[in-house]
């Protein structure tokens, strides 16, 4: 083995086996079907193209959230983050939202980011709930560490889920205060936060896996992809 390959092997984190998130769909108020599924590492470069246009949108902190998701997913793709995952929401195959996070250990999860690409359907809230569902119901963890970078995130997560403040506990996203969704809080709020039906039909899942890049973004007036 060449020395560079040896070094690369040593740089890569040891991966913990993680059960996959089973895809689900949620009917939206306008009848659209939001399909949430877990993506493979090889899908990441494509998803980065969906995220990158928002890296310059300062409004509502899209710039910092998009830039951080971009780097986190790149870290996942290039084997520089341990036990990361990414869930994507699609409607009719078009990417409408992205969430990611990672396992800290078998007991605790680290929520990274939640980003809505299509506004107006509360997709972010549904994707965030799916992420919590993954950690607490499928990975079997006891708690998830969460931070917010926007007032909207604070309202949606910290207040609506009544998250437990653990300000002394540092989150990987920096020095902002850490809050925790415990299993007990999840059980309290799950019924009014986490929806969806399984299984997703093969046809619906195949469409979701097309992961078509959005042509436009309501956050970027006038933007048209490849125009």
């Amino acid at each position: 083995m060449a020395i560079i390959e040896k070094m690369e092997a040593q740089l890569r984190p040891v991966e913990t086996p993680m059960v996959n998130y089973p895809a689900k769909y949620i009917t939206q108020v306008n009848g659209d079907k939001l399909v949430i599924h877990q993506v493979e590492r090889e899908d990441v470069p494509h998803i980065l193209q969906a995220v990158s246009p928002l890296m310059t949108v300062a409004k509502d902190f899209y710039d910092i959230v998009a830039s951080r998701i971009y780097s986190e997913l790149l870290g996942y793709y290039r084997y520089r983050v341990k036990d990361e995952y990414c869930l994507v929401g699609t409607i009719d195959g078009v990417i409408v939202g992205v969430v990611n996070g990672r396992m800290i250990d078998e007991k605790a999860g680290m929520s990274y980011h939640t980003m809505t690409l299509r506004q107006g359907l509360r997709i972010g809230a549904q994707l965030f709930a799916a992420k919590m569902e993954y950690h607490l119901d499928y990975l079997g963890q006891d708690e998830v560490w969460i931070v917010a970078e926007s007032p909207n995130g604070f309202k949606r997560w910290m207040i609506e889920y009544e998250l437990e403040p653990r300000l002394e506990q540092w989150h990987e996203l920096g020095g902002v205060p850490t809050y925790v969704l415990t299993k007990a809080l999840w059980e309290k709020h799950k019924a009014t936060k986490c929806g969806g039906r399984r299984p997703v039909s093969e046809v619906m899942l195949a469409t979701a896996k097309k992961m078509i890049l959005p042509e436009t973004y309501s956050q970027i007036p006038g933007y048209v992809r490849n125009a």
Binding site: V29, R122, A129
Partner: peptide, 10 residues
């Protein structure tokens, strides 16, 4: 009527 109405229309 949808079974997820409490999520999408709380």
């Amino acid at each position: 009527e949808d079974e997820d109405k409490d999520i999408i229309n709380p």
